[in-house]
Design a binder for these strands. Structure first.
Lengths: 348, 348
DNA sequence: CAACATGATGGAAACGTTTCCAGGAAAGGC
DNA sequence: GCCTTTCCTGGAAACGTTTCCATCATGTTG
């Protein structure tokens, strides 16, 4: 039907027998236009299937609109929740969202930011991979409204606002819960690699252990990256090496997955032989047998709030550090009192 | 640092002491520019932190670029895989992706399409919600390169190319597998509502039953929408009403989830009391106890291929019906031979 | 040395929009 | 009847880019 190039405002003006300024006024709603004229313009536009070009408008108004969203991986359930939150908020603001995945690679991330800046998006929301320097320069010179970090902040970049889950409180609650059940040998799966500074969750774990008077066992804090192979290796190593652990706190859902899988392979009953809990409440936590106790981090809310902060609450930005959203402990069936260990021995 | 408005090509030209045409040539790589001049321009651009505006370029070139991607729900694992596939392909083509979720609402979907058309994207990939008429007009008049459907096609729209999983073969294989294990009373969870035409999966199920000589029992083909509450209700109704079913084939991962949950609540052992299998291989299928047998549909490939079809293989489009990508049966532990039913009775 | 090919460069027009400005008509007050 | 106010309308400039065309300098060939 409409095979040729899309109709422009000029076409509509010509068809309606008016000037282009009038057509523009009809579509932007500004100024005043006679009722009869408006009708004629609308009819012509409908006839020609006219849609104002965001390019022309953006150029003239010096803002393209749209927001950029950079996540490590769209298939990660938590990231997906966060994306959904951003989408929901963007929708209320009439903005579209350009999504891309950096897969934890700072170079790739920088590439994406470059592209978004060229697109002249109104702002960028990111779960940053790293490279504080690149972000610093991007935030300064780059996208109009600026940058907001979600779920993760970068050390040494206090000037970039962030919306985070209150992991500290979440891990503290979970650790207290495990200790309260009677556990004394609790492993932490997902510590920092030797030489790198510990993350918030690890620090919270250590602090809480301290606070409740359980001595920390360095051998039970095992380093692992949140990737399937790293997580699996770490979990297997831990549970084989230390038959005496009675509880495992996994610092992320991939770590939790690994713990569950390894426990099953070693024929450990959950929670009779070992209790398992993790940070990140993902759908499979409920499907698991037994269902997994987890700290639910509000991915959707984080995304929504980050988007608000980026576009609406510009003024309120950067005041008083990052926005913290509460995490909730979902108690299910995977944790129980520790088995009564006699000499810490278990055959196998 | 660079607080003011972003530098334009004019600023760079002035700073480098050349004409804007020369700057443009340097950045587009067209034409010929002296080495010394090029260096001067590049230096000036770096100094001013200049990035060419996609708006200006798009306006001049009459194409904005970017592709629109409409899914029902970004948090659905299958959709997420598909998005990842599109992102991967778009990256190789240097395009960005605008993602939005329609949540199964045709009106919302139309709204999103409208917006994408205004953005003058190069094309749209969609898991369409419905409303063939709206899509017909959108495809005709709308986005430059057109529309490609992914994972789902709309009846009566053969002119819109589609990339689909070979669900027919997938369900056939799975049904044959269950029948081969000896099952005769196999339930199909996720049939069409009464009055609406059955989907591909349901037809494949019926046909295969026919082919292997198992009489179809209409009471075992239960209608359910792929939403948690609908799925749960249908699964509960089925397993309570018909204690004699020995296998359940769930037509989607949400249906499968419901089946697993209901079976657990009714204290049915899987697969001793009832075998469960589903379409869609999602991460939790492996985490389940026992791990769930499932038909793996290639979400990533579908997205990738749809994107290719949209932007690269334009010529090859629409030839010979939809592109079918193979689905693979992942045999795990959730299916076994039927229990030896005596009169179909089971207490409870 | 002249004619010419070649390469580097700048000016200007176009892309589709918004908006300022000015002009014209209608209406109201003296 | 004239001036002022109000409302509606069209022309034109600008937004940042690409690209056609013309210009000019340089090097090559006869």
């Amino acid at each position: 039907m409409a095979g040729g190039r899309p109709a422009t405002i000029k076409d509509v003006a010509a068809a309606a027998g008016v000037g282009i300024a009038t057509v523009s006024r009809v579509f932007t709603g500004t100024g005043s236009v006679g009722a009869a004229t408006r009708e004629r313009v609308l009819a012509a536009a409908r006839e020609l299937d006219y849609r104002p070009s965001a390019l022309g408008r953006g150029l003239k108004l010096r803002r393209a609109g749209g927001i950029g969203l950079i996540v490590p991986d769209v298939t990660d359930p938590f990231c997906a929740e966060l994306i959904a939150g951003v989408l929901a908020c963007a929708r209320t603001l009439g903005e579209h969202v350009i999504v891309d995945a950096a897969h934890g690679d700072p170079a790739r991330e920088a590439e994406i930011v470059e592209r978004l800046v060229e697109q002249r998006v109104a702002g960028v929301i990111a779960l940053p991979a790293g490279d504080a320097a690149a972000w610093r320069s991007a935030a300064g010179a780059g996208p109009g409204a600026g940058v907001v970090f979600a779920d993760r902040a970068l050390p040494g970049l206090p000037e970039i606002p962030a919306v985070l889950a209150d992991d500290r409180a979440g891990v503290r609650t979970l650790t207290e819960y495990l200790a309260g059940l009677g556990h004394r040998r609790i492993a932490f799966l997902g510590g920092a690699a030797p030489g790198t500074p510990p993350g918030v969750r690890e620090r919270a774990f250590r602090d809480t252990l301290d606070a409740v008077g359980v001595p920390a066992d360095e051998d039970l804090i095992v380093a692992a990256r949140p990737e399937r192979d790293s997580a699996y290796g770490a979990a297997a190593g831990l549970l084989q090496r230390r038959g005496d652990v009675t509880a495992v706190l996994a610092a992320g859902h991939l770590l939790g997955e690994a713990a569950v899988l390894v426990a099953r392979e070693l024929d450990l009953r959950v929670p009779a032989d070992v209790s398992i809990a993790m940070v990140d409440d993902v759908p499979w936590a409920e499907l698991c047998d037994p269902p997994l106790t987890a700290v639910a981090r509000p991915g959707h809310d984080i995304g929504y709030r980050a988007c608000e902060l980026l576009l609406r609450d510009r003024a309120r930005r950067g005041r008083g550090g990052p926005v913290l959203l509460p995490a909730e402990l979902m108690i299910r069936g995977s944790c129980g009192p520790p088995r009564t260990a006699r000499g810490g021995g278990r055959s196998g």
